[in-house]
């Protein structure tokens, strides 16, 4: 029996492809104490939520594009995207982003890149690496919630 997908939009297959692309968009830092990249579970979960909440048409296009990305490299490398070496993956993505002949591929890459960036930079896990303090905790939203939590305890 397969485990249920933890995602609202991604299937296990599309999640794996997206994760491989996201690792190229914002690579993690493998050195000791280094930061995770856009392929972290938290970033993927945030991207998944954002895509799920967009109009259904956008989700269909993203899913289609992910499948195209996975299969396209077979023509050149004889392997799907997720089995390529990192430098080969970056080369494929650079082609998708910059080619002048196929605007739909540029658009698709722009969309996937946007959600990978949202997953990573929209989450608080990256704020330390950016030297960014994040939302101010003296704002009414946080003050009210702290008060509510305090009352519960």
């Amino acid at each position: 029996m397969t485990e249920p997908s933890p995602h609202r939009f991604f299937t296990p297959r599309t999640a794996a492809i997206f994760r491989a692309i996201a690792a190229c968009i914002v690579p993690g830092d493998a050195s000791p104490g280094g930061h995770e990249g856009a392929d972290s579970d938290a970033a993927i979960a945030l991207a998944d939520r954002a895509i799920a909440e967009r109009p259904a048409r956008d989700g269909r296009l993203i899913a289609l594009f992910l499948k195209v990305v996975e299969l396209l490299p077979v023509l050149r490398y004889g392997k799907p995207f997720s089995r390529l070496r990192p430098e080969q993956q970056r080369s494929v993505l650079a082609f998708l982003e910059s080619n002048r002949a196929l605007p739909k591929l540029r658009q698709g890459f722009f969309g996937v890149k946007t959600f990978a960036l949202l997953g990573y930079y929209g989450g608080e896990e990256c704020f330390g690496a950016l030297h960014y303090p994040g939302p101010r905790r003296d704002a009414p939203y946080y003050v009210l919630r702290a008060r509510t939590e305090g009352a519960k305890q």
């Binding site: 945030l46 967009r54 704002a139 939203y141």
Partner: peptide
């Protein structure tokens, strides 16, 4: 309301058409 604004980008996308941006057909 002002008390609902939590200053987090992913949450506040709900304030925008299509929870983001509307591209032109030409992109």
């Amino acid at each position: 309301t002002r008390e609902d604004f939590n200053m987090r980008e992913p949450d506040m996308l709900g304030m925008f058409v299509d929870r983001g941006a509307v591209p032109s057909t030409s992109f």
